[in-house]
Simulated assay, not measured.
Amino acid sequence: MATATYKEITQLGLWKNNPALVQLLGLCPLLAMSGSVVNSIGMGIATTFVLVTSNISVSLIRNIVSDAVRLPAFVMIIAAAVTAIQILMQAFAYSLYEVLGVFLPLITTNCVILGRADAFACKNRVLPAAYDGLMMGLGFSIVMFLLGFFRELFGTGHVFADMQLLFGPMAENWMMTPFPNYPQFLYIVLPPGAFIFTGFMIALKNMIDDHYKKLELAAKADAPKEDRRVRVTGNVS
């Protein structure tokens, strides 16, 4: 199998094969933990860390582990990476660790991570595997951040609240209030709001993709006409 270029890996992770908007994997933490920006960033960092770590580890043992124990080995690697990020968050962001709750250890069962380990990391060298994990993690994290931003903004009227849970005392004054005296819209902060905003984001991405596909088809349709005009002009001259 030909190894994908870094440009292709970037395009797939951030847009063309985005785990949240295209593959529709990992929706449980995406929907549950995107009620605020700080929760979204925390879960995004944890997921990206596990993706990169597990992809590197799987790539390193890809020629050693047999097919009979491949998937159990992958799960053990992912569980170890999740344990590591749990310990790190307990040490440096314990309050956020408590907020994320059960969704942090449940990263072990996230289909995005196991899927990349089986579909890419076990078939490619370490550096491409690590980069694939990073891009897939960033693609997932960007979607989580956007969901958290808009749900917090339209649900509470402010954004970047409680950022000190992740960044410490220096972030206590990061909260912004674009809509003063905004009546809280609890429906958006609750899980139904996550489904609605995720649906809007998927629809917007599909609209953009369709627009560019139409432009490409139009360009291909015009190309033969231009070639014929050039050939006719050449024959006359």
Rank of each mutant, 00 (worst) to 15 (best):
M1L: 14
T3N: 13
T3H: 12
E8F: 06
E8M: 03
L12D: 14
N18G: 01
V22E: 00
G26Q: 02
L30D: 07
M33F: 05
S34K: 01
G35I: 04
S36H: 08
V37T: 02
V38D: 00
N39K: 06
G44E: 09
T47H: 11
I56W: 15
L60C: 14
L60Y: 09
R62I: 13
I64C: 07
S66M: 09
A68C: 11
V69I: 13
V75D: 00
I77W: 01
A81G: 15
V82M: 14
I85P: 11
I85G: 11
M89W: 08
A93G: 08
S95A: 10
E98V: 15
V99K: 06
F103Q: 00
L104W: 09
L104D: 08
C111E: 02
R116E: 07
D118V: 01
F120W: 11
F120I: 08
N124M: 04
A129E: 06
D132W: 13
L138E: 02
G139K: 06
G139F: 02
G139D: 03
F140P: 00
V143I: 07
V143L: 09
L146A: 15
F149H: 01
R151K: 14
G157W: 05
D162K: 00
M163Q: 02
M163E: 03
L166Q: 01
P169V: 05
T177M: 02
T177Q: 13
P180R: 09
N181H: 15
Q184E: 12
Q184Y: 03
L186G: 12
I188E: 05
P191C: 07
F195S: 08
I196Q: 01
I196K: 00
G199V: 04
A203K: 07
D209M: 07
D209F: 01
D210R: 08
H211Y: 15
H211A: 08
Y212D: 03
Y212L: 03
L215K: 07
A218L: 09
A218E: 15
A219Y: 11
V232C: 01
T233A: 13
G234V: 11
